[in-house]
């Protein structure tokens, strides 16, 4: 093989028994037997093992490149921050033991138990906006144009039969008066 230039060497590998892949762990499980003849002498053993490893690496690379590819800057994890070509790894096949037990939810406190029994739920602050189904708009719960304000049940009416706007009439009165600054300057300094 060594006399052929590297680029001309094949990228396919033939194994007698097909290998099992575990791409989530980047692993390959090869159940082919090692060559017993080659394992006898030191040099032949190393050459055999290296050849096997090369084949395995080639098989793994071939499989990995067949996975969906994401080019940098689009999806989660490191792909967001760094540039480069990413492959999406499938889930692991060979299950390894956990380090610590599966987390269990915290036991409820005495209060939580009691609250559940009594049906007490925590009141969440939902803000000052409420949906008015009649008009189909979001309105304030209280305050100016608030939902809790009913239309006045009695209204003062002027001679024309129109409602007297108390606020407006007060404002008019204020505007008719000269500004207080003017009043000050025109006021005599001392009266005696």
């Amino acid at each position: 093989m060594s006399d052929i230039p590297v680029s001309a060497r094949p990228v396919t590998v033939d194994r007698e028994v097909p290998v099992n892949y575990d791409l989530g762990n980047l692993a390959l499980y090869d159940s082919n037997m090692l060559d017993a003849e080659a394992m006898k002498s030191e040099a032949a053993k190393e050459a055999h093992l290296t050849a096997l490893a090369r084949d395995s690496a080639q098989l793994l690379v071939n499989q990995l490149l067949a996975q969906p590819v994401v080019t940098g800057g689009r999806t989660g994890g490191d792909a967001r921050t760094s540039e480069g070509v990413f492959v999406k790894l499938p889930d692991t096949v060979y299950q390894l033991p956990r380090e610590k037990p599966v987390p269990t939810p915290k036991p409820p406190t005495k209060w939580e138990k009691f609250a559940k029994q009594k049906g007490i739920t925590k009141e969440r602050n939902t803000g000052n906006q409420v949906y008015d189904e009649a008009t189909g708009e979001w309105v304030k719960k209280w305050g100016y144009k608030g939902k809790n304000q009913d239309a006045p049940w009695i209204v003062e009416v002027d001679a024309n039969g129109e409602a007297v706007d108390e606020g407006q009439s007060k404002k008019k009165k204020r505007e008719e008066k000269p500004p207080s600054s003017l009043l000050k300057t025109t006021r005599p300094s001392k009266r005696k």
Partner: peptide, 25 residues
């Protein structure tokens, strides 16, 4: 095996660990 990843940078494929044993099983 190190960190468990869902996305692998192809630049990160740098080495292979081979564990082998003779025998027919």
């Amino acid at each position: 095996r190190g960190e468990q990843l869902t996305m692998l940078d192809l630049e990160g494929l740098q080495y292979i660990i081979q564990v082998s044993a003779a025998g027919d099983g």
